[in-house]
Design a protein around this nucleic acid. Structure first.
Length: 486
RNA sequence: GAGCCGCUAGCUCAGACGGUAGAGCAUCUGACUUUUAAUCAGAGGGUCGGGGGUUCGACUCCCCCGCGGCUCACCA
């Protein structure tokens, strides 16, 4: 009998229909969350609980079962002598995974388990798929835990049901994002939405996804950043704006990169990159609290302190110190040689990209505690203002933690002529860019944008840190996978 | 895009040397009125990721493909 597992449930569904039971009723009674029932303890008061049937322990005329809702699990006591004949018959047709509603009182069994003594039971939704059964023994050890990541990513609903820590992680993500919104709203920022489909992409250096806009008969790109649009708004007098949304970068996937990721970008007029440091510290510390964490957190085995202020180091200083060399005076061929000696394989040929590689190698990957790396070379930062002390540097920082880049911020370049020249030079020098200037953005700068601090924060990575997750995909509900149907 | 590893029942896994597959949980049948990884007895369930090839014979060896994982490359 092929496909037995599914057939059994279909058969039960038919039998339920034969009994006149609607396996998918439209209405259910208001029920008490399991967590509340547990908190309430024993009671003679009749209450209603709803959830998924996750275990059944049959003892003849007595059946113990587990009912789970998002907030917890509670045991059910189902006795032949307590239930009606029809409820008892229904019980026999229930499978693990079915969503049910029970009515009863709460007592404690002689083994000390808080339990609902069910006087009534109702089917709310028949499940036609057998879920993996994960059991936890008395020592709290998981048995037959589902590890097939393909299954878990393709069917996140299964993951959420079967792995409680997955559910918790996404709840934390939501709380973190809510906190950030609340923080920014409370500080006078306006949340806005800018185009995802853009005729010219910009604001970062990345390969875009391309698409065809049918009715316009024009090529469009999925945004790689919101930067250039948000700054237009600052020029337009929306002096504190932010957007939390997806950016798309048509590049490789790895543990810390997702082609579709969530970024918070915020811009604050009359602020600068030091102001952005304060915002970042506020937001990270606050998000941790919102996620239920203390100031000291653990990330993949490392102790991390979120105590502010965060450390500040210079891009060039830190690289000099870590490498023991003044790499900024080196010729490209010598840098190339050093890269090879350090075992870094890279296609990079130009000086500045190689320096950036060496910075990652010597400094960034080794940063554990929250750290602002400040004063980036001008060549790496076309949209940032030049440093007052050194025109080769910019007023920019990137925030690192546990080897991850979490944020990128600068005092925004608002000199329209200088900005145009820099962008033109970049476009000319770069092979893969379209070489198209965003004239509307430059127009906005010509209209005039006040001195402004701006910052982008990688939300998925922040969630990684705060949920102690090693893979960015575990912070994204539906990460991209290759389709298997073709 | 490259290299390596993996893909066996719904889930977790085992299958030395090539002889058409096993376990636990889940499912089904039966027993059991306070168990909790319930227990006991029995049963069903697999075109071993797909396609070729070698061979008398392939889960096993070879080739191609698919999907996943890990590293690397790409990544203001």
């Amino acid at each position: 009998m092929p496909g037995e597992q599914g057939e059994v449930r279909r058969d039960k569904l038919d039998r339920l229909l034969g009994m006149g039971i609607d396996p998918y009723p439209a209405r259910s009674a208001v029920s008490l969350p399991v967590a509340d029932i547990r908190a309430g303890g024993e009671t003679e008061e009749t209450l209603v609980a709803s959830g998924r049937l996750t275990a059944k322990r049959e003892h003849g005329k007595t059946i113990f079962a587990d009912l789970r809702d998002p907030g917890g699990t509670i045991q059910l006591y189902l006795g032949r002598s307590v239930l009606s004949d029809s409820d008892w018959e229904l019980l026999g047709l229930l499978d693990l995974g079915d969503i049910i509603q029970v009515t009863g009182t709460v007592f404690t069994t002689r083994t000390g388990e808080l339990t609902i003594r069910c006087s009534g039971i109702r089917l709310l939704c028949k499940s036609l798929r057998q879920l993996p059964v994960v059991k936890v023994d008395a020592e709290g050890v998981y048995h037959d835990e589902v590890t097939d990541s393909d299954l878990l990513y393709r069917h996140r609903c299964v993951d959420l049901l079967v792995n409680p820590e997955s559910r918790t992680r996404f709840e934390m993500r939501t709380r973190i994002v809510s906190y950030l919104r609340g923080y920014l709203d409370a500080n006078g920022f306006l949340e806005v939405e800018t185009p995802v489909l853009q005729p010219i992409y910009g604001g970062a250096a990345a390969q875009p996804f391309e698409t065809m806009y049918g009715s316009m008969d024009q090529k469009f790109y999925l945004r790689i950043a919101t930067e250039l649009y948000l700054k237009r708004l600052v020029a337009g007098g929306m002096e504190r704006v932010y957007e939390i949304g997806k950016d798309f970068r048509n590049e490789g996937i790895d543990r810390t990169h997702s082609p579709e990721f969530t970024q918070l970008e915020l811009y604050e007029a009359y602020s600068d990159y030091t102001g952005m440091m304060d915002r970042f510290e506020d937001m990270v510390a606050g998000a941790a609290t919102a996620a239920g964490l203390e100031e000291e957190i653990e990330y993949q085995g490392a102790a991390i302190s979120l105590r502010t202020p965060f450390r500040r180091i210079g891009f060039m200083d830190s690289l000099r110190r870590a490498s023991g060399e003044d790499l900024f005076s080196w010729e490209p061929k010598d840098l190339k040689g050093l890269l090879e000696r350090q075992g870094i394989t890279s296609d990079a040929e130009d000086r500045i990209t190689m320096l950036d590689k060496l910075f990652d190698h010597y400094v960034a990957h080794r940063i554990v505690q929250p750290t602002f790396v400040v004063d980036y070379p001008l060549e790496l930062s076309p949209l940032a203002k030049r440093s007052l002390e050194d025109p080769a540097l910019t007023e920019r920082f990137e925030a690192f933690m546990a080897g991850l880049e979490l944020a990128n911020a600068f005092s925004e370049q608002n000199d329209p002529l200088l900005q145009r020249r820099i962008l033109e030079e970049q476009a000319a020098a770069s092979l893969h860019r379209e070489g198209t200037l965003d004239e509307d953005f430059l127009y906005a700068l010509e209209v005039g944008m006040p001195p402004t601090g701006g910052m982008g924060v990688g939300i998925d990575r922040l969630v990684m840190i705060l949920t102690d997750t090693g893979r960015i995909r575990d912070t994204i509900l539906f990460p991209h996978l290759r389709r298997t149907d073709q």
